[in-house]
Write a protein that binds this DNA or RNA. Structure first.
Length: 583
RNA sequence: GCGCCCGUAGCUCAGUUGGAUAGAGCGCACGGUUCCUAACCUUGAGGUCGCAGGUUCGAAUCCUGCCGGGCGCGCCA
């Protein structure tokens, strides 16, 4: 409907060629918005005020000239000039009725755009290190990323969802050695578990499940040979580093690799299953190892070197990040010859672009914000534009239990898992709650409230509206009525109650809300809209009986209910929340 | 110290890219079901939009400076 208003304005401006310069490249659609107050009509445009200065005419004068040129249409009842120069449009009932018919016609497709082939979007999210189960913070990334993906698809973009698996590097060695030590413990070896190791219970579970045919038991003395003391007496990092060395010596490099890989695979599979149960799936799980093992990183560094963007200093190789706006240059190859995480990340983002994705979106934790500039710099240096990459930062989830903040640490194993949360509050409530706040806002997740009062969650309020409509149609059959849809469509002019008008107005906003939420990568717009829509429906439900004796009025009201059901279901599907037939 | 994010009702948060009288939920107060699901609805109280300037027809929104909170500033990932 909004685009129709914009079109009318465009038509009117076509009749005022003297304004062409003043208009310039102004997007007329951006001047049209829903009114907040019904006394201002349904839509308002501030175009006269926007053009006033460049056209050197008074806003009200301009508005009058534009209104004069508006085409004659049965969609608009009334146009008024108000306040400093707003043009207020009151749509005709027929315009709303036509929109309801569109909802019924398009059904599942209402609010969606036709698929387009470009730009291709690569959406990377979660990408949690495979060092343990996902915790409640990752859950927010999963829900947010999945919903953003759904929104982008709804507006027609091809979206490729990717999870970057950090399955290379020192963290993985620590994981491997943690599992090995737990396995040795199970075999009876006495040992003090390293403070820098992963202490979570799941490590023991993995140790119990892995194939250890080619691993020999070692006693404590052999194990600890040459290993410096752990904290607090010694350095915990040096301690675990030495243990990794012992593992590689005692198991052989290949043996340790196999053990480590089993641990990684086990955790990765667990994460994949967890997310799938949460309704979050990926098109590809991109392994960092695949970059390390292929020549991808070396190739990338070679290109950078060729372009003169690398230099050596203090035995290390540095990338001239400062040339691209970073605050300092960054190491890509350490003095010990090891490539940094940053080096593989340049290669990874370069690879994304090389695979033909036009627009990259990374959803990262807020603690990664210092990282954004240098990754963009890397992309820039590799010949692409920094703007090709958009980074959305997701702020932390603070967990509260008994009114107290819960501390979380993966290494200590003290954290609440996404699985526990899903079991406690349910997938629907979790998906909904996670995206109900702006991603750049801290999220306080009170477990006690979520667990004990889960029925107060607004998600049920919206689902209830959907279930109520389904119930109305069930009741209809029980009362031996049938919905004559054609008659309902033809009788929409009978819907004259205030609540009916309000509901139709709310329904017609849906496509605009999807556009807004997708354009801003901001699912909370949809969440709040659905809450408001459900409120409009519940109000209508309480004010009027739908299943009345008058055939045409009943059919018309049922048509409005059916349209409402489509819109609520479409919105919930985007949020990854179920739309139940009964509750 | 530097950088990024945040500051809106008692609490938790929205606020349509600068619009008209700043909104919702919870909580609080008052009402509403012999009738399609009361997991519901109606009405009300509750605000110095952190503070101070600036930009303009118009600012919660943009700019500057303070104050307060979070996060980051490694040859870790």
């Amino acid at each position: 409907m909004k685009s129709a208003i914009a079109q009318f304005l465009n038509d009117a401006l076509a009749g005022l060629p003297e304004l062409a310069d003043a208009i310039g490249d102004l997007d007329i659609g951006s001047t049209v918005e829903r009114t907040r107050d019904a006394s201002h009509g349904d839509f308002a445009s501030n175009i006269a005020m926007r053009l006033a200065k460049p056209a050197r005419r008074s806003p009200r004068d301009l508005a009058a000239a534009i209104v004069e040129q508006l085409p004659d249409t049965d969609q608009i009842d009334k146009v008024e000039i108000a306040g400093p120069g707003f043009i207020n449009f009151s749509l005709s009932p027929a315009a709303f009725h036509a929109e309801i018919v569109t909802m019924l016609d398009l059904a599942d497709e209402y609010g969606r755009h036709a698929p387009r082939s470009a730009p291709r979007i690569l959406l990377e999210f979660v990408s949690a290190n495979p060092t343990g189960p996902l915790h409640v913070g990752h859950g927010r990334h999963a829900a947010y990323g999945a919903t953003v993906g759904n929104l982008l698809e709804a507006v027609g973009y091809p979206v490729h969802r990717e999870y970057y698996v950090n399955d290379a590097g020192r963290q993985m060695d620590i994981l491997g050695v943690s599992v090995w030590l737990r396995w040795l413990e199970r075999g009876g070896t006495q040992l003090a578990f390293p403070t820098a190791g992963y202490r979570g219970e799941y490590i023991g579970d993995i140790a119990a499940a892995i194939n250890t045919d080619d691993i020999d038991v070692v006693d404590q003395e052999t194990l600890m040979e040459g290993v410096p003391a752990d904290a607090p007496d010694g350095d915990k990092e040096a301690h675990i580093e030495a243990l990794i060395g012992r593992a590689k010596t005692l198991l052989g490099d290949d043996g340790f690799d196999r053990l480590r890989q089993q641990a990684i695979d086990s955790i990765r599979d667990d994460i994949e299953e967890d997310l799938a149960e949460f309704g979050v799936t990926f098109d590809r799980w991109f392994s960092e190892q695949s970059l390390t093992k292929s020549s991808r990183i070396d190739d990338t560094l070679a290109v950078l070197d060729e372009r003169g963007m690398l230099y050596k200093k203090d035995g290390a190789t540095w990338f001239r990040a400062m040339d691209f706006g970073d605050e300092k240059d960054r190491v890509v190859i350490r003095e010990n010859g090891a490539k940094t995480y940053f080096a593989s990340d340049i290669a990874y983002h370069f690879d994304k672009r090389e695979r033909g994705f036009d627009h990259l979106i990374d959803i990262l934790g807020a603690d990664h914000h210092g990282y954004v500039t240098r990754v963009k710099a890397g992309l820039d240096a590799m010949g692409y534009k920094a703007e090709d990459l958009k980074v959305e930062l997701v702020q932390f989830v603070a967990l509260y239990r008994g009114g107290k903040k819960v501390k979380m640490s993966t290494r200590s194993g003290e954290f609440d898992t996404l699985r526990q949360l899903r079991a406690d509050v349910g997938n629907d409530a979790a998906r909904f709650f996670y995206v109900s706040r702006s991603n750049d806002q801290h999220l306080d997740f009170d477990l006690d409230v979520a667990k004990s009062q889960s029925n107060d969650n607004p998600v049920y309020y919206i689902q209830y509206a959907h279930a109520r409509i389904a119930s109305v149609f069930r009741q209809l059959a029980e009362k031996n009525y049938a919905w004559d849809e054609a008659n309902g469509r033809a009788s929409l002019s009978l819907l004259t109650e205030a609540q009916e008008k309000a509901l139709m107005t709310a329904l017609s906003r849906y496509p605009e809300v999807v556009d807004l939420a997708a354009g801003n990568l901001a699912p909370q717009h949809l969440v709040h809209y659905l809450r408001d829509l459900a409120n409009d429906f519940h109000t209508y439900y309480n004010a009027h009986v739908f299943i009345v004796g008058d055939d045409s009025l009943r059919d018309a009201r049922l048509a409005l209910c059916a349209a409402t059901r489509h819109v609520i279901a479409n919105g919930l599907i985007i949020l990854g929340v179920s739309a139940p037939e009964s509750m």
